[in-house]
Every structure is written in structure tokens, then in C-alpha cells.
């Protein structure tokens, strides 16, 4: 089980929860399950969500594996200059 911590803008999509638990082996599966359970997250996922796993931020590598029982953080896909 992966403990997924949400940032503010996602809380309304999850019914006000700060975090949700999802069974997922990689980022692709994580997004698929989040979308299925919380349809309100789809626009955010479409716009781009980055995933922080053990301190490393992944923006695009959806095949990135998530170790079991990890606490991960979802973040907006940031822009830079």
C-alpha cells in the first residue's frame, strides 16, 4: 500500500482528504487508480502532476516503480525560467 499525500488543490478532488492509500507498483498504476477512484483528479493529472518518491521528484517517468509501504507526495508540475 502506498500512502499518497496530496497538495491543497487536490484536496477538493479527494473529498477533502489530505492523503489517500492506494495499491500501486508504479506511477502509471498510481494515476490510473487515483483517476478511477477520484474522477476530480483527472484534470490535474492531465495538466501534469509530479510525484516525489523518497525525496526524488519524477515529472514524466510513469514507469518509475514505487517501493511498497512508501509515503509519496503529489506536486504540481512546476514551470521554470
Amino acid at each position: 500500500m502506498v500512502h499518497v499525500v496530496l497538495w491543497g488543490a487536490l484536496k477538493s478532488a479527494s473529498g477533502g482528504k489530505d492523503a489517500v492509500d492506494v495499491e500501486a507498483r508504479d506511477i502509471r498504476e498510481l494515476f490510473r487508480k487515483l483517476e478511477a477512484e477520484y474522477p476530480g483528479m483527472k484534470p490535474h493529472i492531465d495538466r501534469g502532476i509530479a510525484v516525489s518518491i523518497n525525496g526524488t521528484i519524477y515529472r514524466d517517468t510513469w514507469s518509475q516503480t514505487i517501493p511498497p509501504d512508501t509515503e509519496i507526495y503529489l506536486l504540481p508540475r512546476i514551470a521554470g525560467g
Partner: peptide, 19 residues
């Protein structure tokens, strides 16, 4: 965006976000 319940009036605040 990002406030519950969804506002009924349009606004110049496009989004609220929190960390």
C-alpha cells in the same frame, strides 16, 4: 478552482492552492 463548495459566481481568483 480549489475551493469547496464550487463557487457560484465567476472570480478573478482563478485558483486557490495550499501546502
Amino acid at each position: 478552482e480549489g475551493v469547496e463548495p464550487k463557487p457560484k459566481k465567476p472570480s478573478n481568483i482563478a485558483k486557490r492552492t495550499e501546502f
